[in-house]
Design a binder for these strands. Structure first.
Length: 500
DNA sequence: TGAAATGTTGGGGCG
DNA sequence: ACGCCCCAACATTTC
């Protein structure tokens, strides 16, 4: 579309930023910049949303950093980010009225609550003669564009992903707008405007974010650097390395995608491009599959909400999950006595992130060994992960718990010792996050309770004091889970019988 | 994107 | 030499 130079007297176009905190490949911003109207960029923070989920602590921390970066990037181009505070619909409508905006645009969201809000904002604005334009900035395929032959949403990942990739190339990522004419927000527009620090997104007393600061650089520029580093150093060995938590062999792009510091289209095409440069097709395919799981999660979120509350497979509604605050606490703190699980939970607490292989083991441990409701684990991850989003987090928990679409079968129970021996054979990962075990030999570091007394003494490990014994016996917990889950399957069968 | 139990096979020790 | 047993090693089945 031709770009017209806006005159200062013209009414502005509002770009409502949400989880798309970048300038490049941002369809709403690109549209606005070329619209002939001066552009005003806003972000709305609602600390107590009515229906939607309030962000967790780690996400709030990243959000602060990311918004600061976005504001700086806009400022470098002569503009800035206006941060607004309060219920989204009310805030946007007020801001539009006060600035006399003629158009509002944004990139679409996919949870039921978000869609409800966006639809309400859109119709309210339209009723007042204000144009609204929305775009896809977050996904390769929006959920309603992928269906079975019968027009139904997919429920199996393999079939979904085949269909989503078939005969289809995502839009090419676009560069940031060359020039943006910004609208100067008048002095009198003060209601609902906040300085970023006043949102109080960052923890103060206590300040638990030190590990996050040490681990992450947030925002679009840092995301681009991480992407380039991944392509250069890690992608080629991804197929094998991704399962080794002691190696830095995953992309670590999840939080950048969560906040839209990177667009998935940028990542997609960067990986494909790297694939052409060398014989690493297997690794690239594995990586693209992971992007596929992210797409599938949004597909489920859109079609089967509320994903974080309701079992996708409703027969699990009858599951008698244990209510056991002390066990939950031990799991959260990383004091289960199973080194791989504890290492993961401590990495999570310290860095706001956990290696994917370990996420599966730690999640499985809560659900199957402790027989605790997956929603309790999902809530903890929601609060502690910097990459927690409304789709992937609950979808992945339901997958592990066996309650989800295309989920792991109920009898698939990880043995945390075997998983440790298989994927952390030298104990690098455990030694890093459970330092009190660091001096144990490789052979016993995944199961210190099986170590010789002399080994424990030599490593200064006092079981039950410096490190706990296993909080449940694996063999016993496994049998218990199988019985409970098997009974659940059986009761469903009886219901079906009596109905027939 | 498991693990454990069970079944099968084949080499080697031994009477 | 032969049958028998043991038991890895591997395959299959079951949870």
């Amino acid at each position: 579309m031709p770009s017209r130079s806006p005159r200062p007297s013209q009414p502005p176009v509002v770009v409502w930023f949400r989880d798309d905190q970048r300038l490049a490949d941002h369809p709403a911003l690109e549209y606005a910049a070329a619209s002939g109207h001066p552009v005003v960029c806003v972000y709305v923070y609602d600390p107590e949303p009515q229906d939607a989920r309030a962000p967790g602590g780690a996400v709030r921390w990243w959000l602060h950093e990311s918004l600061r970066e976005l504001d700086a990037a806009l400022a470098a181009r002569g503009g800035g980010l206006t941060v607004l505070y309060g219920p989204e619909q009310e805030v946007i409508e007020t801001f539009v009225a006060q600035t006399g905006a003629a158009k509002v645009c944004w990139n679409r969201r996919y949870s039921a609550a978000q869609r409800k809000t966006d639809a309400a904002v859109k119709s309210a604005l339209k009723a007042r003669g204000i144009e609204v334009f929305t775009f896809n900035g977050h996904l390769l395929r929006e959920p309603w564009t992928v269906t079975t032959r019968g027009g139904q949403p997919f429920q199996v990942f393999g079939a979904y992903w085949r269909a989503a990739r078939h005969d289809y190339a995502p839009e090419l990522p676009r560069p940031a707008p060359g020039r943006i004419e910004f609208f100067r927000v008048p002095e009198h527009v003060t209601s609902r405007v906040k300085a970023l620090p006043d949102l109080k997104l960052q923890p103060c007393a206590p300040d638990w974010a030190g590990g996050l600061r040490d681990t992450w650089q947030c925002g679009e520029e840092a995301g681009q650097r991480r992407l380039q580093q991944f392509l250069a150093d890690t992608l080629a060995g991804y197929a094998i390395g991704r399962d080794t938590p002691g190696a830095q062999a995953t992309s670590r792009l999840s939080p950048y995608l969560r906040f839209g510091n990177l667009s998935v289209r940028q990542v997609w095409y960067a990986a494909l491009e790297a694939s052409r440069a060398g014989p690493i097709a297997a690794s690239v395919d594995k990586f693209l599959d992971e992007l596929g799981w992210r797409e599938f999660s949004y597909h489920l979120l859109y079609h089967f909400a509320p994903l974080n509350r309701v079992n996708f497979r409703r027969q699990f509604d009858a599951m008698p999950w244990r209510d056991d605050p002390e066990s939950l606490d031990a799991w959260q703190r990383g004091t289960t006595g199973y080194p791989l699980v504890d290492a993961g939970m401590r990495e999570l607490w310290h860095t706001g992130w956990m290696h994917n292989r370990v996420r599966m083991v730690a999640a499985s441990f809560l659900v199957k060994h402790l027989l605790m409701d997956w929603r309790a684990g999902e809530a903890w991850f929601w609060d502690t992960l910097v990459d927690a989003d409304e789709a992937s987090n609950p979808a992945s928990w339901q997958w592990v718990a066996g309650t989800g679409a295309d989920a792991a079968p109920y009898f698939r129970i990880f043995n945390p010792v075997l998983q440790g021996q298989k994927f952390d054979p030298e104990g690098d990962y455990v030694r890093r996050w459970v330092p009190e075990l660091a001096r144990l030999p490789d052979a016993s570091i995944q199961a210190p309770w099986l170590a010789q007394r002399a080994q424990l003494e030599a490593a200064s490990v006092r079981l039950g004091e410096s490190y706990p014994g296993p909080m449940v016996d694996h063999q016993h917990a496994r049998t218990r889970a199988l019985q409970a889950l098997h009974a659940l399957q059986r009761s469903r069968g009886e219901q079906a019988d009596s109905a027939a």
